[in-house]
Protein backbone atom coordinates (compact mmCIF):
# COMPACT_ATOMS: atom_id res chain seq x y z
CA UNK A 1 0.00 0.00 0.00
CA UNK A 2 2.73 2.44 1.00
CA UNK A 3 4.50 1.74 -2.25
CA UNK A 4 1.48 2.78 -4.26
CA UNK A 5 0.12 5.76 -2.38
CA UNK A 6 2.47 8.41 -3.76
CA UNK A 7 2.24 7.36 -7.39
CA UNK A 8 -1.54 7.15 -6.91
CA UNK A 9 -1.83 10.69 -5.54
CA UNK A 10 0.49 12.15 -8.16
CA UNK A 11 -1.19 10.36 -11.04
CA UNK A 12 -4.57 11.54 -9.73
CA UNK A 13 -3.40 15.15 -9.76
CA UNK A 14 -2.04 14.87 -13.29
CA UNK A 15 -5.24 13.30 -14.56
CA UNK A 16 -7.45 15.86 -12.84
CA UNK A 17 -5.65 18.61 -14.74
CA UNK A 18 -6.03 16.82 -18.06
CA UNK A 19 -9.49 15.26 -17.77
CA UNK A 20 -11.34 17.84 -15.67
CA UNK A 21 -9.39 20.94 -16.66
CA UNK A 22 -8.17 20.71 -20.25
CA UNK A 23 -10.75 18.34 -21.76
CA UNK A 24 -13.89 20.42 -20.98
CA UNK A 25 -12.05 23.64 -21.88
CA UNK A 26 -11.18 22.17 -25.25
CA UNK A 27 -14.79 21.07 -25.86
CA UNK A 28 -16.06 24.52 -24.83
CA UNK A 29 -13.63 26.12 -27.29
CA UNK A 30 -14.73 23.88 -30.15
CA UNK A 31 -18.39 24.42 -29.23
CA UNK A 32 -17.94 28.16 -29.89
CA UNK A 33 -18.35 27.23 -33.55
CA UNK A 34 -21.55 25.27 -32.90
CA UNK A 35 -25.07 26.68 -33.13
CA UNK A 36 -25.72 28.65 -29.94
CA UNK A 37 -21.95 28.82 -29.31
CA UNK A 38 -22.22 26.11 -26.70
CA UNK A 39 -24.58 28.15 -24.52
CA UNK A 40 -27.69 26.34 -25.74
CA UNK A 41 -29.67 27.31 -28.84
CA UNK A 42 -32.08 30.18 -28.16
CA UNK A 43 -35.17 31.19 -30.14
CA UNK A 44 -35.78 34.85 -30.95
CA UNK A 45 -39.13 36.48 -31.55
CA UNK A 46 -39.55 40.20 -32.20
CA UNK A 47 -35.99 40.84 -31.12
CA UNK A 48 -36.37 39.08 -27.79
CA UNK A 49 -35.26 35.68 -26.57
CA UNK A 50 -38.50 33.79 -25.96
CA UNK A 51 -37.03 30.39 -25.20
CA UNK A 52 -34.64 27.59 -26.07
CA UNK A 53 -35.13 25.57 -29.22
CA UNK A 54 -34.81 22.30 -27.37
CA UNK A 55 -36.66 23.12 -24.18
CA UNK A 56 -40.42 22.89 -23.99
CA UNK A 57 -42.62 25.67 -22.59
CA UNK A 58 -45.91 25.75 -20.81
CA UNK A 59 -48.84 26.69 -23.06
CA UNK A 60 -52.24 26.83 -21.45
CA UNK A 61 -54.06 29.46 -23.52
CA UNK A 62 -56.56 28.15 -26.05
CA UNK A 63 -54.92 30.05 -28.91
CA UNK A 64 -51.67 28.14 -28.49
CA UNK A 65 -50.90 24.55 -29.18
CA UNK A 66 -50.57 22.95 -25.75
CA UNK A 67 -47.44 21.15 -24.63
CA UNK A 68 -47.48 17.88 -22.71
CA UNK A 69 -48.13 17.81 -18.98
CA UNK A 70 -44.94 18.37 -16.97
CA UNK A 71 -43.87 17.20 -13.52
CA UNK A 72 -41.78 20.37 -13.07
CA UNK A 73 -44.25 22.75 -14.70
CA UNK A 74 -41.70 23.52 -17.44
CA UNK A 75 -39.36 25.29 -15.04
CA UNK A 76 -36.04 24.42 -16.66
CA UNK A 77 -34.04 25.31 -13.54
CA UNK A 78 -34.68 21.63 -12.75
CA UNK A 79 -35.97 18.62 -14.61
CA UNK A 80 -37.87 15.46 -13.69
CA UNK A 81 -40.54 13.01 -14.67
CA UNK A 82 -43.52 12.23 -12.51
CA UNK A 83 -42.09 8.81 -11.61
CA UNK A 84 -45.63 7.57 -11.21
CA UNK A 85 -46.02 3.84 -11.63
CA UNK A 86 -48.50 2.52 -14.16
CA UNK A 87 -50.85 1.04 -11.53
CA UNK A 88 -50.86 3.99 -9.11
CA UNK A 89 -54.53 4.94 -8.47
CA UNK A 90 -53.75 8.60 -7.67
CA UNK A 91 -51.82 8.88 -10.88
CA UNK A 92 -54.67 7.38 -12.88
CA UNK A 93 -57.00 9.93 -11.29
CA UNK A 94 -54.68 12.74 -12.46
CA UNK A 95 -54.73 11.36 -15.98
CA UNK A 96 -58.53 11.25 -15.87
CA UNK A 97 -58.60 14.90 -14.80
CA UNK A 98 -56.33 15.85 -17.68
CA UNK A 99 -58.65 14.04 -20.07
CA UNK A 100 -61.63 15.95 -18.68
CA UNK A 101 -59.81 19.29 -18.95
CA UNK A 102 -58.79 18.54 -22.49
CA UNK A 103 -62.33 17.57 -23.49
CA UNK A 104 -63.74 20.71 -21.86
CA UNK A 105 -61.39 22.92 -23.90
CA UNK A 106 -61.75 20.93 -27.08
CA UNK A 107 -65.44 20.29 -27.62
CA UNK A 108 -66.19 17.95 -30.46
CA UNK A 109 -63.11 15.81 -29.84
CA UNK A 110 -63.72 12.12 -29.27
CA UNK A 111 -62.04 10.75 -26.18
CA UNK A 112 -60.68 7.75 -28.07
CA UNK A 113 -58.81 10.10 -30.42
CA UNK A 114 -56.74 11.83 -27.71
CA UNK A 115 -53.14 10.59 -28.00
CA UNK A 116 -51.73 9.40 -24.66
CA UNK A 117 -48.84 11.88 -24.71
CA UNK A 118 -51.26 14.80 -24.17
CA UNK A 119 -52.39 13.41 -20.82
CA UNK A 120 -49.11 11.89 -19.59
CA UNK A 121 -46.04 13.72 -18.26
CA UNK A 122 -42.74 13.49 -20.14
CA UNK A 123 -39.49 12.08 -18.77
CA UNK A 124 -37.70 15.41 -18.40
CA UNK A 125 -40.72 17.60 -17.75
CA UNK A 126 -39.31 19.76 -20.56
CA UNK A 127 -40.34 17.80 -23.66
CA UNK A 128 -40.30 20.34 -26.50
CA UNK A 129 -42.20 18.16 -28.98
CA UNK A 130 -45.52 16.57 -29.80
CA UNK A 131 -46.39 13.94 -32.36
CA UNK A 132 -48.26 15.29 -35.41
CA UNK A 133 -51.47 13.54 -34.23
CA UNK A 134 -51.32 15.34 -30.87
CA UNK A 135 -51.07 18.70 -32.66
CA UNK A 136 -53.78 17.99 -35.23
CA UNK A 137 -56.35 17.18 -32.59
CA UNK A 138 -55.89 20.70 -31.19
CA UNK A 139 -56.34 22.51 -34.52
CA UNK A 140 -60.12 23.17 -34.23
CA UNK A 141 -59.63 24.80 -30.83
CA UNK A 142 -56.70 26.94 -31.95
CA UNK A 143 -58.55 27.96 -35.13
CA UNK A 144 -61.60 29.01 -33.16
CA UNK A 145 -59.60 30.97 -30.56
CA UNK A 146 -57.72 32.83 -33.27
CA UNK A 147 -60.55 33.14 -35.75
CA UNK A 148 -58.42 31.52 -38.42
CA UNK A 149 -59.31 28.92 -41.01
CA UNK A 150 -58.33 25.41 -39.79
CA UNK A 151 -56.83 24.66 -43.20
CA UNK A 152 -54.24 27.40 -42.78
CA UNK A 153 -53.18 25.98 -39.43
CA UNK A 154 -53.11 22.49 -40.85
CA UNK A 155 -50.72 23.67 -43.55
CA UNK A 156 -48.57 25.35 -40.92
CA UNK A 157 -48.42 22.18 -38.82
CA UNK A 158 -47.41 20.20 -41.87
CA UNK A 159 -44.65 22.69 -42.52
CA UNK A 160 -43.41 22.33 -38.93
CA UNK A 161 -43.55 18.54 -38.82
CA UNK A 162 -40.10 17.00 -38.71
CA UNK A 163 -40.11 13.50 -40.15
CA UNK A 164 -37.88 10.66 -38.96
CA UNK A 165 -34.11 11.11 -39.24
CA UNK A 166 -33.15 10.56 -42.92
CA UNK A 167 -36.81 9.66 -43.42
CA UNK A 168 -36.12 6.29 -41.82
CA UNK A 169 -35.16 6.44 -38.16
CA UNK A 170 -37.21 7.42 -35.12
CA UNK A 171 -40.54 9.15 -34.61
CA UNK A 172 -42.03 12.22 -36.34
CA UNK A 173 -42.42 15.31 -34.18
CA UNK A 174 -43.51 18.95 -34.09
CA UNK A 175 -41.64 21.54 -32.00
CA UNK A 176 -44.43 23.21 -30.03
CA UNK A 177 -42.65 26.51 -29.33
CA UNK A 178 -41.72 27.05 -32.95
CA UNK A 179 -45.23 26.19 -34.11
CA UNK A 180 -46.73 28.68 -31.66
CA UNK A 181 -44.34 31.42 -32.76
CA UNK A 182 -45.36 30.73 -36.36
CA UNK A 183 -49.02 30.93 -35.32
CA UNK A 184 -48.46 34.34 -33.71
CA UNK A 185 -46.56 35.55 -36.78
CA UNK A 186 -49.25 34.35 -39.14
CA UNK A 187 -52.01 36.25 -37.41
CA UNK A 188 -50.37 39.61 -37.78
Amino acid sequence: MKRYIFPAVRLTLVLIVVLAGLFPLFIAAVAKMAPGKGDGVTVMHKGKVVGYANIGQKFTEDKYCWSRPSAVDYNAAGSAGSNKGPSNPDYLKTVQERIDTFLAHNPGVNKEDIPAELVTASGSGLDPDLSPAAVEIQIPRIAKARGMAPERIKALVKEHTKGPLLGLLGPSKVNVLQLNIALDDMQQ
Binding site: G81, S82, A116
Partner: peptide, 20 residues
Protein backbone atom coordinates in the same frame (compact mmCIF):
# COMPACT_ATOMS: atom_id res chain seq x y z
CA UNK B 1 -54.82 1.21 -17.31
CA UNK B 2 -54.70 4.12 -19.78
CA UNK B 3 -56.35 1.99 -22.47
CA UNK B 4 -59.12 1.29 -19.97
CA UNK B 5 -59.86 5.03 -19.79
CA UNK B 6 -60.53 5.04 -23.51
CA UNK B 7 -57.48 6.99 -24.64
CA UNK B 8 -55.63 6.31 -27.87
CA UNK B 9 -52.05 5.10 -27.52
CA UNK B 10 -50.92 5.29 -31.12
CA UNK B 11 -47.25 5.36 -30.15
CA UNK B 12 -47.47 3.32 -26.93
CA UNK B 13 -46.97 4.05 -23.25
CA UNK B 14 -45.90 7.70 -22.95
CA UNK B 15 -45.69 8.46 -19.22
CA UNK B 16 -42.09 9.37 -18.43
CA UNK B 17 -41.08 9.25 -22.09
CA UNK B 18 -40.02 11.89 -24.58
CA UNK B 19 -41.77 12.28 -27.94
CA UNK B 20 -38.48 12.50 -29.86
Amino acid sequence: AIAHMGIAQPTGAMEGKEVR
